[in-house]
Design a protein around this nucleic acid. Structure first.
Length: 471
RNA sequence: GGGGGCGUAGGUCAGUGGUAGACCAGCGGACUUUUAAUCCGUGUGUCGAGGGUUCGAUCCCCUCCGCCCCCA
């Protein structure tokens, strides 16, 4: 019979604190000080009238040392299973073999682990189990705990970094009446009492820029966005995006803040700005290379593929490089596809890929000196997009024209959800000052700085096929 | 949707055309300073599911399911 567990337990020390505070205790010595610790039993060694257990809490681990001569309910203690939660009180001692220990006088079972234990040496390696039962993964695998903590620190440091620069954090709606400006399929849901369909947001930018119109000159949001697309090691249908908007700034300011933020986070999390990913060094030290997309494509494939080429040239380049394309695509879309298929994945060290075709960038302002292009960049690291930024389009008439073209394009692509966002156009008519905007994928940033190969390793509960549905 | 890989005990993994093994965990026992403790004893299972070939299938073949990776 298992007694009812207590409702609370007074913990005086974390395991790591005990180990640190009594560092100087000699082997065989007793401190005379009693502590109470709590956590899970991770290893257990019974030896006749003695019993040793490794107790782990969120700070680390400390050994529990029980014996018939000093431990209440000793037989019960020896019967503890791996994974059981225990609270224990006793004097801090160091054993003759030198292990700092709590010499257990009293102890209490806080919860049983009824469902077996992973391999105590290898943990749990089955990826399906690790993702479906993250609670098991977390207590069995040190790497999993480290990643979770790194993510928490990264988000926390990001807030601090931005707040120090006078950015204000806000929360904008997750339900959008109109699909946003990014190029992604939305999830659709329905509000019963309003009897309207709503879309889960695919980005945060529209509402954030409306706040800039309202006078919030530096604003950011760290929030969940949703894209109804496939799963892959780099894509989860819901993921976390940082977006920030800064009045009176342009995309060059966004480059500066991007590289400073990433370098700062790398420093905080890894102790330096050169990190290792997939066995290769990545130098995140600012300043990052800045190069027009057209230049990078030509570097990669040895011939130009940009808006100075005519449509037939671009189609030929696409064909030569096995880039599939559709007849209705204009030169800008072709150029972007060629870039993505031939160039992007080869960019290892960070580079700001600048000056996108206007055709594929409905929310970015036209380039001040390069016709056909907009002032937009993506920060690419280890061959992946990490962030995306513009000098924001502020002209309501131009914005309307772009939205209408985008809606036509989406309808042509079979997307019946496309509509012009009249609310946003009305907001622009109230005046958006020159503004720089930046979006950064938090999940991919955590991957980069923790070495994770899959986005599922940095999301506590990634999207999975439901287990139910088996016959 | 196409290609490749994987699926064996609670965990980590071997293995064979003659219905299965190791270690750990579990259970019983010994042990007063252990460190993945050790030692003795002990049980593990629809070998992912279904069908086929075969005297006989966990193994070979087919279909399906699930997971991972690559591609679209």
């Amino acid at each position: 019979m298992t007694p009812e567990p207590p409702y609370r337990f007074d913990q005086t020390h974390m395991a790591a604190d005990v180990v640190a505070a009594f560092d100087s205790l000699e082997p065989g010595a007793e401190s005379g000080q009693s502590v109470s610790v709590a956590g899970r039993v991770m290893l257990h060694r019974h030896q006749g009238k003695l019993d040793f257990a490794e107790l782990r809490d969120s700070s680390g681990a400390v050994q529990l040392f029980a014996g018939t001569g000093w431990t209440g309910a000793f037989d019960g203690f020896t019967a503890l299973s791996l994974g059981d939660w225990v609270g224990a009180t006793g004097e801090v001692v160091r054993t003759r073999r030198g292990e700092l220990s709590v010499k257990v006088a009293d102890w209490v079972l806080l919860a049983e682990s009824r469902r077996g234990f992973g391999d105590k040496w290898k943990g749990v390696t089955d990826v399906d189990t690790r993702y479906r039962q993250r609670e098991v993964d977390l207590w069995a695998n040190e790497d999993s705990r480290r990643t979770l903590l790194a993510r928490s620190r990264l988000v926390s440091e990001t807030r601090r970094f931005l707040e120090e620069r006078r950015f204000i954090e806000v929360e904008t709606p997750t339900f959008h009446p109109v699909v946003g400006g990014a190029d992604a399929r939305p999830f659709v849901t329905h509000h019963n009492s309003l009897d309207v369909d709503l879309y889960l947001r695919i980005e945060e930018e529209i509402y954030l820029k409306r706040l800039v119109v309202g006078g919030v000159e530096r604003v950011f949001e760290i929030g969940r966005v949703f894209r109804n697309e496939g799963l892959s090691p780099r894509h989860n249908p819901e993921f976390t995006m940082l977006e920030l908007y800064q009045a009176y700034a342009d995309y060059t300011d966004m480059m500066a803040i991007s590289e400073e933020l990433v370098a700062h986070l790398a420093q905080e999390l890894t102790g330096g700005t050169v990190v290792e990913y997939a066995g290769r060094p990545v130098d995140l030290t600012p300043p990052w290379r800045r190069a027009p997309m057209a230049e990078l494509i030509e570097e990669s494939i040895g011939r130009p593929a940009d808006l100075s080429c005519d449509l037939e040239d671009l189609r030929r380049v696409a064909s030569d490089h096995e880039v599939p394309f559709e007849a209705r695509w204009g030169p800008g879309k072709l150029m972007l596809e060629i870039y993505e298929k031939t160039t992007e994945t080869n960019l290892w060290d960070p580079v700001f890929v600048c000056d996108y075709p206007q055709e594929v960038s409905p929310l970015a302002r036209v380039h001040r000196s390069r016709p056909g292009y907009v002032e937009r960049f993506e920060g690419v690291v280890v061959g992946r997009e990490l962030c995306n930024a513009f000098s924001e389009l502020t002209d309501p008439d131009d914005q309307r024209t772009r939205f209408e073209a985008q809606v036509q394009e989406k309808l042509a692509a079979g997307n019946s959800d496309a509509r012009v966002d009249e609310d946003y156009l009305r907001a622009l008519e109230n005046g958006l000052p020159p503004t720089g905007g930046l979006g950064m994928g938090i999940d991919r940033l955590v991957m980069l700085l923790t070495g994770a190969q899959s986005i599922r390793d940095v999301i506590a509960f990634p999207t999975l096929r439901p287990e139910a549905g088996r016959p």
